[in-house]
Structure formats: C-alpha cells, structure tokens
Design a protein around this nucleic acid. Structure first.
Lengths: 234, 234
DNA sequence: GAGTGGTCTAGACCACAAC
DNA sequence: TTGTGGTCTAGACCACTCC
C-alpha cells in the first residue's frame, strides 16, 4: 500500500464520514503531516490526487476545501467502461448478444493496430443499470493478448477478469464521441424508435505498456443515461 | 516561469519538432536530469503533467514513450469552453444573439448559488468554427463578480477578459451532459430540423477560490462537432 | 542482474490570500 | 505581517521490466 494512496483514502473517508459540505475547510498541511506521520511531499501528493479526483480543491495562500460531490444518477464519463466499480451502488446486469472469434477488416486492423490474420474476440453486449437499458456495447479484444473469453466471463467485468487472470493492466484510453440517430438494429436493442438520438463512443484501450488490447463502440440510451465530468485547471 | 512547466514544454516541443511517432522511447530520467539541469522530482513532475495531458506514457521498469496524438477535427471535451486557445488553429467566430442583465429565477439561483436579488449577465451566443455552426451557448455570469460585459467583449473570449481585467482565475468546473432532440428555438439557431439530435451540456465554473462565477448551457450541432477525451488510470 | 520509473524523506525557500 | 499552499532540491530506497 502506497503511503499517499493510504492518506488520500483516509482524508476522503473523513470527509464522507463527517458529511462535510462543499466549501468546508480542512486542516492545513502541517497539521495533516502531524496527523498522518508522513512527509510534506506525501501529503501534497495525496491532496493533489484528491484534487484531480474532484474531492477537494486547494487555494494557495488560503487553504484546502471540500468540493461539491456529483449529483447521483449521473455516470462518470471517464470511468464509464470500468463499469462495475463506481456506479452509485446501482445494480447492473449484462446480456450477451453475441460472442465470436473473427478476423478483423481493414478498418478494425487500424483501430487495433493489428495484423489481418490475428484472431479477434467480438463481443456484443446489452448493459442494464438499475433495471433500465443503459447501452449497447460492441467490443473487439485481441486474442493474442486475451487468449480466452466465454459468455460467463463476458457477463461480468471483462476488465477485472483480464487484470486478474492475465495480469494485463489498463494504462490509458482514447475516447472519440459524437451524437447521431439510431439505425434499426441499435434502436431495437435499446427498445427505442428508429432515429432516436444517441451518444456514440469509440474507445481504444491501451495496457500500461502502451499496447492496444481492446477497441469498443458503445451506444448509449439517451433517456436512461446522463453523464458527469469534473475538470481542473491544475 | 515554473521549472517543471518549462521542462514539460521543452519536452513536448522536442516531440513535436522531431515528429516522434507513438511508441517512440524518450531518454531516461537520469539523462533528462542532466539535459535540463533540474532535480529528479522536477523531471518527474514535468513528466506526470505530460502524461495527464496525454502527450506521453510512462511504464515503470521500461521507459517513457510518446503517446498517439488526437485526431484533428475533434474537439477536446475538457477544454471546449476555453475555446479560443486550443482549437487546431481553426478560425472561430461568435455571433451575439442576446446580452441582458436579468434577475435569476429559483433554479438559476441554485445553479449559481446566489441571491434572487443579484444582477446576472445573460449572454446567448452562436459559435462558429471553420465557418460551420458549432454550438449555441447560454451563459449566466454573476455581475457581482464580473461587473461589466458588453457585446464587443462577449464577441471574444469572455474567460480571457475576466482573467486579464478582473484577475479572476478559473479553478475547476462541473459538467453535466445528456443527449436529446432540438426544440424549435435551438433548431433554428443551429439551422437544423426540429427534433434533430444534439448534445446538451450544463457546466458550472468555479474560481480558484471556489466561488461560482458562471453557469452555462451549451447545445452542440451534431453534424459539425465530434469530441475527444483522453483518460489515464494514473 | 542491469536498467528504468516510482516513492518517500527533510528541509529550504517562494507565492499568494486574508487580515 | 502571518498563515497558507506550492516549488525545488539531493539523495536513499523500492518496484517493475526485460534480457
């Protein structure tokens, strides 16, 4: 356990447990150093992590303050794939529509930066949150990197499975998105009329080593899905 | 000029100037320490900044590598308001539709966390990028904090104006968004048919001191606007 | 085992905010 | 002026990757 992660968790826990409201000032850095018995740099690293996460904000010369928490029922746009983790404790389920091994066409080769002869797992899933249709997801995993997936695995968190079984860690991702209307196929999956509006997201996932292992196309149900994103200038 | 910002800029400049492609390995930390004559911590801080920005990725035990740059013609979703800065050097213009001083209704009071008696600047703008309609923006600024705005100022970057004239710095923002269809009014502004799909974003902007100074509702033209977002697990 | 990034420390000094 | 967060340093040691 890293010290700065430990301190960050404890500070966050303290905020939640005491239900501190937005704008409440926390102790100053020297006090936190004394309280958690770590160096100044470690405290600062913990605070910066919480600041990027949106839990607090820091003002030079003034202090450290609690930031407004996000409204519930909104999905964090950054963590929307790492799904099962942080979803306001709402129950989520998954229905597998398709699971095949395919050969990639030229466009998919480019997205996955792979060879046309490589085997690719193609998984089409319908995802529900709180018993409402949330999205249709079409994912392409390189079999070279993820040797085995079955329907049982695909019904849960594929990312957790990949991490635990193959020790593959997600490092970063590129997300491209746009708004458009639903075609017949997607409309039927989402139980919406054809030409309903929808958010379409194309996301490429890289391991910590910088290798692409997954390309996913997600289409969200516009009535059941609102998003949230916190930004920082720091 | 902060040292780590200086180093980060120089490294980024080096990558762009030499047109290094994704996956290209950079020098190791010790070499960078020697090259830029700063401490290890400063180099690391510069690298972490570039990593969060999406310019590079670092792998423990392996090295520092160049990350894929975003496709052009996509808008960075995080910096979409601070508009004039980073827009692929595409020409952008603004048409003022309305500029009034109003009293906030109860909902706006809640969004701005202000008193019903406060004066609020209401600004409705149509924004063009590369001569195409990009979005309609309806912004509410607290006159208490931004005492004066006119149409000339609102035709440029209001954020730059606020920063330079009133020394108010944006610290962070909360962005809520969803997809829906256009009503008559917005459809006319965007020159699209009624019921066209659109992305609706509500964003609250805070100063570095944690005070709300702006609440904005933006509606994007779905055909002329695609977005981009880079994520990190770090 | 050699090389590489990441953590952690103690302490000096700087920059900004509030009174 | 005082208190606060932020920068920067030198150096020890840890953790991971790859040969």
């Amino acid at each position: 356990m890293l010290k700065y992660d430990d301190v960050a968790e404890k500070i966050e826990h303290y905020i939640h447990q005491n239900q501190l409201s937005a704008g409440t000032q926390l102790k100053n850095i020297d006090a936190l150093i004394h309280q958690y018995q770590v160096s100044r740099s470690t405290i600062i690293k913990a605070l910066n992590k919480l600041e990027r996460k949106g839990t607090i904000y820091q003002t030079q010369g003034s202090g450290i303050f609690v930031r407004q928490p996000k409204k519930s029922d909104y999905f964090s746009f950054i963590e929307s794939h790492g799904f099962t983790r942080d979803l306001n404790n709402m129950p989520s389920t998954t229905k597998i529509l398709q699971l095949d091994i395919i050969k990639p066409d030229s466009q998919l080769c480019q997205e996955l930066q792979c060879d046309p002869s490589e085997d690719i797992y193609f998984i089409k899933r319908l995802r529900y949150v709180d018993n409402q249709i949330h999205c249709v997801e079409q994912s392409y995993y390189r079999k070279k990197m993820i040797p085995y997936i079955n329907t049982e695995i695909a019904s849960g968190s594929i990312f957790t499975y990949i991490k635990e079984v193959f020790n593959i860690n997600i490092g970063f991702s590129d997300k491209y998105f746009e708004v458009n209307v639903l075609n017949e196929e997607l409309a039927e999956y989402l139980s919406l009329p054809v030409n309903s509006p929808a958010l379409f997201v194309n996301e490429t996932f890289y391991t910590t080593a910088g290798d692409i292992f997954d390309f996913s196309k997600i289409c969200y149900h516009f009535e059941n899905t609102q998003f949230f994103l916190q930004s920082n200038t720091k």
